[in-house]
């Protein structure tokens, strides 16, 4: 079985700072890491390979530095990595990103048929979760999003069955192969990399493709040009002004807060009164 995992290098948003002057993100303030959800996707692919045999390839679109994220995937156990990197990909929104990834998948498919594609649920920077379903649509295969468990892969009969997290619980869904899954963090624990993987990763050089290495590419659909959405203004989210303090003695305070509750009565009105 050949499993392809789409991975993205992202700034660590837990540490990133906003430049107060320009209201933009100071990317140098945060290290670039493998998108945490994608680490789970790679782990899942490696586990599936252990059961079904085959190969795990990771694919990323990004600047040359993204090779580091690919090496991280090799550490987790991926066999191969491909980076598509070219100025003409830059500034892509999710529509243009899915087009570029789709063109790369097409090329990979030609030499090495692809049975399953895994993506993270979302990337922690752009945070849209739109790329995976977009790639699936372009390939004409079903996306199965929010996957928390791969129940069964039947390579012979070309089916996959997964658990998909939804608000009220989970759905059990089956689909034909090839399929594209986007995975949640619950799907697995990313295990410590064994030493041989780490050694291999340190020396690993992913293949790097430019636009010219892909076939039948419509340049107008790539990068900034191919992106219908643009980021207009950016600003840091409002810091809370803090509470309005209710002063006075206990009695006044209680009366005042009751008044507030009365004023916001409609908050209570539609309340489902689920008491427990």
């Amino acid at each position: 079985m050949h499993i392809l995992v789409c991975i993205k290098q992202v700034p660590d948003t837990k540490i990133i700072k906003v430049n107060p002057k320009t209201n933009t993100l100071d990317r140098s303030s945060a290290p670039a890491i493998l998108n945490p959800y994608d680490a789970h996707a790679v782990e899942e692919a490696v586990r599936l390979r252990e059961v079904h045999g085959g190969k795990v390839t990771v694919l990323s679109m990004g600047p040359p530095q993204a090779r580091k994220a690919i090496r991280k995937c090799v550490e987790i156990g991926a066999d191969e990595g491909i980076l598509i990197s070219d100025r003409r990909f830059a500034g892509a929104d999710t529509l243009a990103t899915s087009y570029a990834l789709y063109k790369a998948v097409e090329k990979i498919q030609k030499t090495d048929g692809v049975d399953l594609i895994l993506c993270g649920k979302h990337a922690i920077d752009g945070d849209t979760g739109q790329t995976g379903p977009g790639v699936a649509r372009r390939l004409g295969i079903p996306p199965l999003t929010c996957v928390i468990q791969v129940d069964q892969v039947d390579v012979e009969n070309r089916t996959v069955r997964v658990h998909r997290k939804v608000e009220e619980g989970y759905e059990v869904i089956s689909s034909t192969l090839p399929s594209l899954l986007t995975v949640e963090k619950e799907i697995n624990h990313v295990s410590w990399a064994p030493l041989p993987n780490m050694l291999r990763a340190a020396r690993y050089e992913p293949s790097v493709w430019t636009v010219d290495d892909l076939e039948d590419v419509d340049i107008k659909q790539l990068g900034l040009k191919g992106s219908p959405t643009i980021v207009g203004k950016m600003w840091p989210p409002e810091k809370s002004k803090g509470a309005q303090m209710i002063e006075g003695d206990a009695e006044t305070q209680v009366t005042e807060v009751l008044k507030i509750f009365m004023k916001e009565r409609d908050l209570f009105k539609s309340a489902g009164q689920k008491q427990n």
Binding site: I16, L25, I124, G232, K233, M234, W235
Partner: peptide, 12 residues
Amino acid sequence: AFGGNIMATILC
């Protein structure tokens, strides 16, 4: 976006 660190207006 960016884990809630920034708000962005998206236009199309």
